[in-house]
């Protein structure tokens, strides 16, 4: 067994183990960092496969993404530190079943499928080849991804901004009730500013 193989098996095990831990750990912050570990291990496997740019790109993309993920975790979760045991799942048996079936089906494809064995040629420079592809034949695809990202940014700012042209983002919204059909739980109080604004509006 070569050093490459040993590195591969260690990283594969880490990727799968960390991916599994994401959904069983109590702490939400830990969950996002377990996902980061899973991505880092996959990045190392990509480096082993000579995808030098993609592996390293995965490192920095995922470090930033998971950092943001952890911040959101802390903002939205009741139990970010995992001090209490926590299991927030629904239809778990179905989910496990589907997960296992998908894994089995895809593995069957991997084991029984016949794929041509054409490894990367000796002299290929992966980064150069990727660069020529991105800014050559596939420039349209690459630039479309860029424009889509720009559109995403605009949409995200629009969705998350507190106020639009016609008033507050949460104007008229109702939190769900504690029990089905019950009174709205924890309705946010009208802010001082909001009420003032309304008052003025009526006067004019």
């Amino acid at each position: 067994m070569s050093a490459v193989d040993i590195t591969f098996f260690i990283n594969a095990a880490v990727a799968i183990f960390a991916g599994w831990r994401v959904f069983v750990t109590d702490s939400m912050v830990r969950a996002s960092f377990f996902l980061l570990i899973s991505f880092l291990a996959v990045g190392v496997i990509m480096l082993l496969l000579a995808a030098v740019y993609l592996g390293v790109a995965l490192f920095f993309m995922m470090a930033v993404e998971m950092m943001v993920m952890a911040l959101f975790m802390v903002m939205f979760m009741m139990n970010p530190a995992g001090l209490n045991p926590m299991k927030m799942v629904h239809q778990e048996k179905v989910a496990i079943g589907v997960g296992v079936v998908v894994f089995a089906a895809l593995s069957a494809v991997a084991v029984f499928g016949e794929f041509p064995s054409r490894p990367v040629p000796e002299g290929l420079q992966p980064v150069v080849s990727l660069g020529h592809e991105l800014l050559g034949k596939s420039m349209l695809v690459f630039e479309s991804a860029g424009v889509t990202l720009l559109a995403t940014m605009i949409a995200v700012v629009m969705l998350t901004s507190h106020r639009g042209r016609y008033g507050d983002a949460n104007h008229g919204s109702q939190p769900p009730g504690l029990e089905p059909g019950g009174d709205p739980a924890d309705k946010p109080e009208e802010t001082e500013e909001g009420g003032h604004h309304h008052h003025h509006h009526h006067h004019h």
């Binding site: 594969a12 990727a15 799968i16 991916g19 599994w20 994401v22 959904f23 899973s38 996959v42 496997i45 989910a95 496990i96 589907v98 997960g99 296992v100 998908v102 894994f103 895809l106 593995s107 494809v109 991997a110």
Partner: peptide, 11 residues
Amino acid sequence: VAAALIGIGIY
């Protein structure tokens, strides 16, 4: 390995 990651993700 990829299939396992996808399976866990679907779960």
